[in-house]
Simulated assay, not measured.
Amino acid sequence: MSGKLVVLTGPSGVGKGTIVHSLLNRYPDLYLSISATTRSPRAGEIHGKDYYFVNNEKFEEMIRQNQLLEWAQYAGNYYGTPRLNIEDKISKGFIVLLEIEVAGAKTIKKTFSNVLRIFILPPSLTELENRLRGRATDSEQAIKKRLKLAKEELAVSQEFDKVIINSNLEKTLEQLELIIFSA
């Protein structure tokens, strides 16, 4: 079996993290790429497991040294994908999952022409707002910023290879399994 890069994206709060963790529980042979970010860790997040948490200077050095497959600024912070083991894992036949923000997902095609890009939609903007508020991790200002950005991101969803509405986790996972393992 040949390896491939599968990108999951969508607005903040759409459930990307939950989806990825569920897929990894079902398929432990999937390789999850860990992104770098300049945002502060949320409660329970671990450096090197959830993200590589770095400061702005380190991130900008990674950009200059071409150590990132893609990078973007989102909600006032840098996010990017370190090359690290991704190319090696793909060459060894692994399916590499990459959970990234929409801006990065749009540009990854320049680095990997054979990438499978999947956009996760919320059932509605109201539901997305409820999910963001339910996390209780962001200030009111941050939530408003994320919702404004989500509207812009939803407008480009059709530019991606596949689009899935995450209204029911089990159905979403079934759709993703079909797409990832048959493509």
Score class of each variant (00 low, 15 high):
D161Q: 04
I143H: 07
E174D: 13
A105F: 03
S40N: 14
P11H: 11
E140R: 05
G134F: 00
Y51T: 02
I108N: 08
L121H: 10
F181I: 05
F112P: 06
G134M: 03
Y31M: 07
E159D: 14
L147A: 06
S91F: 02
L169F: 11
G17D: 15
R146K: 15
S35G: 15
V96K: 07
A43L: 12
K92V: 00
L68Y: 06
G44S: 09
G76F: 03
G76C: 05
T107Y: 06
L5M: 12
F53I: 07
T18R: 11
D161Y: 03
V96S: 06
I63D: 05
R26H: 05
R135V: 01
P123R: 08
L116Q: 14
K109L: 12
Y52K: 07
S12W: 03
G93L: 09
A183M: 01
I90R: 05
K49C: 02
L98T: 00
R26K: 15
G13C: 13
S35V: 03
K92Y: 07
L98E: 04
I164P: 08
S12I: 02
Q65A: 11
L176G: 06
E61A: 12
Q65I: 01
G48H: 09
N85Y: 03
P82E: 07
G48N: 10
L68I: 09
E57K: 15
A72R: 11
W71T: 03
E159C: 03
E99Q: 11
I86S: 05
I179M: 11
L116M: 14
M1S: 13
N130Q: 12
L149Y: 00
N56D: 14
S182Y: 04
I63F: 05
N66C: 08
A105S: 13
V7D: 09
I90A: 04
G44W: 04
I118P: 09
E87N: 09
V7G: 06
N56I: 10
T107K: 15
K49W: 02
G17L: 09
G15E: 05
I19W: 04
E101M: 03
P82W: 01
